[in-house]
Design a protein around this nucleic acid. Sequence first.
DNA 1: AAAATTCTCCGGAATTTCTCCTATTTTGTT
DNA 2: AACAAAATAGGAGAAATTCCGGAGAATTTT
Lengths: 211, 211
Amino acid sequence: MEDNIKVILADDHQLVRQGIRALLEELGFIESVAEASDGRQVLQLLRNGLKAQVVLLDVEMPGMGGIETLEHLSRDFFGVRAIMLTMLNDRAVIQRAVDKGAKGYIFKNASLAELSDAISKVVAGGTYFASDVALALLQPSSDAGKLLSQLSEREVEILKLIAEGFSSAEIGKKLFISPRTVDTHRNNLIQKLQANGIAGLVRFAVLNKLV
Amino acid sequence: MEDNIKVILADDHQLVRQGIRALLEELGFIESVAEASDGRQVLQLLRNGLKAQVVLLDVEMPGMGGIETLEHLSRDFFGVRAIMLTMLNDRAVIQRAVDKGAKGYIFKNASLAELSDAISKVVAGGTYFASDVALALLQPSSDAGKLLSQLSEREVEILKLIAEGFSSAEIGKKLFISPRTVDTHRNNLIQKLQANGIAGLVRFAVLNKLV
DNA sequence: AAAATTCTCCGGAATTTCTCCTATTTTGTT
DNA sequence: AACAAAATAGGAGAAATTCCGGAGAATTTT
């Protein structure tokens, strides 16, 4: 039909593509006009004149992945909106996807209703992000958490103060220890966190909401 | 009924409370057992033995606001789950709410379906965040954006390098300018951003995703 | 209980970096 | 051309960091 929403489905697993396609067709107002197993194919399809309003993009694909595809899409096919459909809930990935122009981000365990919702919203010019996206963004990243747990209490205490901008001397006064001790802790922190320098420590502290 | 979901509604505007209450009752499986116009009342109700699984909390309320209420809830009434229902989409507010134990965050322009969804998910032990929450978290905060726009290109450039841990000397070398010039820029940055010291600059840069 | 590890603590000296104050040049705007 | 804003820079003292080192106390392992 004419006023159906036309989507391209990009995922490197055929079964996933077929499954999602079947679901979409059930909805009645969405037409899966093409499938692609990587980003390059998506771009090829569009260059060949295929019309579509939405691309459902997996992030992990051999060849050209979803993020890279986004760059090309926003440059060459501005009108085509991309929704990421993936299993990755890594904060950096989400951030990058949105920075590169993704209008939506949902997970592969989403319900059909949610997928439908996302497509509708995005086609209407809006955005859609799964509930879990917010959760991923709000919670400290796990690997940073590991690093944090390797620090002693004293180190965490000092890390906080460093991130608040206090010098060794000032921290020493606060904690009734020698500034040299603070230095040692600071250096140990830099070691443990593989931070390069004090700025790295502050960055870590901020990212982990210690301050 | 017995197995209805029991919610307490906290908002300082009576009309809002009544409206939402009416909507909830329509759903059939949710029972609005009480209303409160601020956090203190919520706690009072619970202390008096009122049973409820969910509290819908506005953030802005006279007296005890939503965030403060969350602290008391998680301390004294652990089983009661809180969902923020507000107009605020400020990143800091969202972050604080979740840090203090909110299980959900939705906006007052949400549909009944969404509200219902949120309550169901949360009662089932999950979480629910409106799509716009993710959006708010992903986009640079507006007031920080204002500050950022007050900086010259050069200043932003130098801010980034500072946040990456380079000293004035190193930055000077990179940019082919005198370290003193970098000093000046740095000091101007501290002034403009009202950051206290270099750590403050790094913090700003990190929070605004310059690095 | 002994050993090993980790945490916490501290100092001196050399080096680097920051802080302040002031001032010139360049750029952009009306 | 006049003016404002941004970018540039020097010098000197104060402050902070780095880099060596060592050592007692607490915790964990053996």
